[in-house]
Design a binder for these strands. Sequence first.
RNA 1: CGGGGCGUAGCGCAGUUUGGCAGCGCACCAGCUUCGGGAGCUGGGGGUCGCCGGUUCGAAUCCGGCCGCCCCGACCA
Length: 576
Amino acid sequence: MRLTRYYMPTLKEKPSEAETPSHQYMLRAGLVRKLAAGIYSFLPMGWRVVRKIIEIVREEMDRAGALEVFLPVVQPAELWQESGRWEVFGKELLRFKDRHERDFCLGPTHEEVIVDLVRGEVRSYKQLPLNLYQIHIKFRDEARPRFGLIRAREFIMKDAYSFDKSWEDLDVSYGKMYEAYSRIFKRCGLDFVVVEAETGAIGGDVSHEFMVWADTGEDVIVFCEGCGYAANKEKASFMLDETEEEGEMKEPEKVYTPDVRTIDEVSNFLGVDPSKLLKALVYRANTGEFVLFLVPGDRDLNEAKAARAVGAESIEMALPDEVLDIAGVSVGFVGPCGLRKKVKVVADRTVKGRKNLVSGANEENYHIVNITPDVHFKVDLYEDIVFAEEGDRCPKCGEPLRFSRGIEVGHIFKLGTKYSAAMKATFLDEDGKEKPFIMGCYGIGVTRIAAAVIEQRHDEHGIKWPISIAPFEVYLLATNMKDESVKKIAEKLYMDLVAKGVEVLYDDRDERAGVKFKDADLVGIPIRVTVGEKRAKENAVEIRLRDTGEVEVVPVSSAVDRVLEIRKELYEELEP
RNA sequence: CGGGGCGUAGCGCAGUUUGGCAGCGCACCAGCUUCGGGAGCUGGGGGUCGCCGGUUCGAAUCCGGCCGCCCCGACCA
């Protein structure tokens, strides 16, 4: 492609709206332009990158035996009402009416549609396993889109759905996707880690996230260098230290603590370390049950774990008047001793065996000190309900856990029968019984991959694309189009490289060399071939790798062969 | 949804405090010179100053309302 015939509007200055490297460079290199908050158009270069990612995803999905389909973006409300998610899904689900006043939504995900597509058609276990996938637009009306394509409202996603007759078969389907995902991200040049994850509101049992290491990431990766354990913040567990506490057990005592409510305030006022305090939090589960959670003052309640502990799908902080009703006191003075109403008490497992703790006295402006669990108050259940903290011990090997930030590029779930059962999607099994499909679902953020790659592979001059998803393989740069020998060599190289099937972006613009070098660095095409006046006199050109900065000078006669060799090596580095 | 900030040429910004000709740099067009890391000179084109209303002889500037965008947090199938 000749740059004079191409559309690559690069920007010299950083657009004010862009903070993170990927966002900045995608705009500056002319890959995308914003249409509205979280909604982007792809320009020719950007779309070439996306198409290459799509092709890698497609190859690996096909290789894993999945079948490509194409499902509608606009979906009728009835399907979502059937699964129960019309009510459950929040404002992220963009709803609207058609001309007949019928409710529709833009698909944020396609479980409902795929289940509807398969039910009734797949009737026998003999037709299983089945894995259907698609690659196209999703729309989620995010509360706060940010970081350009990392959290956009409209984005391209690959989503796959597996249907199996048994949990054992689901394990096989799941394993194939795990393998395919690892191959995909390797081929895209990403440095990633697979973490155990919570399943969240999508439902299901086992789940893994594919996370790309990046300081600008929104997610926290909890990992252990000792044994390779890795989990996301919600899921991460830690090894419990033996906490049989030394010292005499003392008698409880009420203390006047006027308007002293927060952990910090109580800690300061009483001169007690936060770890000796008990945070008492009243929650309402989606089952309607109220629960009092107790966690040490120096730790935070993990709502996902807490919900799981009480067998609820979700939990929500109780409202102030609900707290007043249950504890007989306002938030800040709630504790496990002497609650007005009896509710289930769930304490973090680190609380067990502790002595002489401090908590609210369930009396306005009073705390109670020297209370010991199972002696001065009853705990119905000890469970892991807090977030792991950096430095906690790895649940597998006991080494200290480390935290790092990451971007989620893929997520796989063992869904089970959540949707197949709700939507009555069943098959006839070998034993003649009708059973709901055992499902799995598997997502990859295609456009997010493009951004994640830039987050990982850039420098102060621009992007450093891996060759597999680079918009072009070679940037052919003629330093001076008015110099006849330069132009002649460049034109011939261009024709020869194209003839060999190399994707070349030929910078044949009548620009100064400096402008061309800056653009070449910015757009980050991996192999740069420079035809300059001095070298041209010696019948040589310069080949430079964008990633390493490595330069070699080769005779014009062997330049094409050398480029082919380098290209081959660059692809080999990315092989799974 | 809570907090903060911004909206003036395609991009980056000044001007708003104290009302008085709408500016600067880059980009764009023409010419001359220059030509391996975002050139120089000369001349030029381009604006509903986010929108609506109000105050005023006069509003980018003051007042009221609305909209959009960014950042922090909450949320995130």
